[in-house]
Computed example of a mutant assay.
Amino acid sequence: MSPRKSVAETAATRDRIIESALALASTEGLEGLTIGRLATDLEMSKAGVIGHFGSKEALQLAVLEAAVERFRLRVPARAVGARPGTERLARTFDEWIDYMAGSEGHGGCFLTSVATEFDGRPGPVRDAVLEALAAWSAYVASELNTAVDNRELPERTDVDQLVFELNGVALAADQSIQLHHDPQAPTRARRAIARLLIAP
């Protein structure tokens, strides 16, 4: 076996483990990930699974990183073509709601679930969640500031407050979709987002 092929196969195996772990964590939570369950599902040894990461925590961080990248490609990346400001934000939140409501989301917003799971557990995983959420809020704030600069929103707009409210709508939508199975949740969420992004 050539060294290049060996590196490629190792990377492919690692990706397969992460994909399986992401699917499992979406239903069982990141803390619910067990090396034994993954090994069984993937028909690998426990040593073969953990050998790609070194520890369960490193595996959790890799899964979280993969989930964040999937979210980035599925949600904000699809809104890149929209006009910066309120139009792009409306499109972004629309994509997020679609993602939460669709099967591709593995049952809601993974990052939101992990944030709830680790909000009271200090450590590297919680730090990574905070970093991802901070990056998202910074993105939303940047688009809102652009909207203010373009006079789509009033100059007096409290951007931090509006970021809080927009994210609050998304969190409520996620709970209504996943916990209450409310078929009207996506429509209600879009209506609330649109109202928040319209200048008074």
Rank of each mutant, 00 (worst) to 15 (best):
A11N: 09
A12Y: 05
R14G: 08
R16K: 12
R16H: 07
E19M: 01
E19Y: 00
E19K: 11
A21N: 10
L22F: 06
A23K: 09
A23H: 09
L24H: 08
A25R: 10
S26E: 00
S26P: 12
T27I: 12
T27P: 14
T27F: 04
E28K: 15
E28R: 15
E28P: 15
L30N: 03
G32A: 04
G32E: 05
L33N: 06
L33P: 13
L33K: 14
I35A: 00
I35S: 01
I35K: 04
G36F: 06
G36T: 15
G36I: 11
R37G: 14
R37K: 14
R37W: 00
L38Y: 02
L38Q: 02
A39G: 10
T40F: 00
D41Y: 00
D41P: 14
L42C: 03
M44S: 09
M44D: 09
M44E: 07
S45K: 06
K46A: 05
K46P: 03
A47T: 14
A47P: 10
A47S: 13
G48Y: 09
I50Q: 10
G51Q: 14
G51A: 11
G51I: 15
H52K: 11
F53W: 11
G54K: 05
G54S: 05
G54I: 08
S55I: 15
S55D: 04
K56Y: 01
E57Q: 14
E57R: 15
A58T: 13
L59D: 00
Q60F: 06
L61C: 04
L61T: 06
A62V: 10
V63N: 03
L64Y: 04
E65H: 14
A66M: 08
A66L: 08
A67L: 01
V68W: 03
E69H: 10
E69R: 12
R70T: 03
R70W: 01
F71L: 02
F71G: 00
R72T: 08
R72Q: 11
R72M: 05
L73P: 09
L73G: 14
L73T: 09
R74N: 03
R74V: 02
R74L: 01
R74F: 00
R78L: 06
A79Y: 13
A79W: 08
V80E: 03
G81N: 08
G81V: 07
A82T: 12
A82R: 15
